[in-house]
């Protein structure tokens, strides 16, 4: 059985793009790639939780960051994990200039659309990491 790909979103609480990272991760793990991905909470890695670190060491991770400080990617690496791909929501935003997300507690329609666009990009990466090329 193939290992699940770990999805690690930033825990951003002050910007819309942090919320997009979080929602995008939920779309991947719950809708697009359930059973093939596993959500990994950043707070437990920050704390140095042993169980979480063991899980992290067993599989590749996709870090999704909402700002250039890249906490998710940095914390995964600091905890001994392997960042197979580090995504910046800002880059996804640049690829979709028509979408201008706003809201933090509650994303607006643009924010939800951007989260889905982000999730589609992550799904492609998951397929590649697992050797499952999509022909859809």
């Amino acid at each position: 059985m193939k290992e699940k790909v770990l999805i690690v979103p930033c825990s951003g609480i002050g910007k819309s793009l942090g919320s997009v990272a979080r929602e995008g991760a939920y779309v991947v793990t719950e809708e697009l790639c359930p059973g093939r991905t596993q959500l990994m909470p950043l707070a437990l890695l920050v704390l140095g939780d042993k169980e979480t670190q063991i899980e992290l060491s067993s599989a590749g991770a996709i870090a999704i960051d909402g700002c250039v400080r890249a906490c998710a990617a940095k914390v995964v690496e600091g905890a001994g994990g392997r960042v197979a791909h580090g995504l910046q929501v800002l880059d996804v935003c640049r690829r979709h200039p028509d979408l201008k997300p706003s809201g933090i507690s509650e994303l607006d329609e643009s924010g939800h659309k951007l989260a889905h666009a982000l999730a589609e990009e992550v799904k492609e990466l998951v397929d590649n990491m697992r050797g499952e090329v999509s022909h859809a």
Binding site: S11, I13, G14, G18, L42, A43, V46, C71, K74, G78
Partner: peptide, 11 residues
Amino acid sequence: VTICLPLFLAG
């Protein structure tokens, strides 16, 4: 005011 929790380590 607030701050993202991971910034304590990564910031």
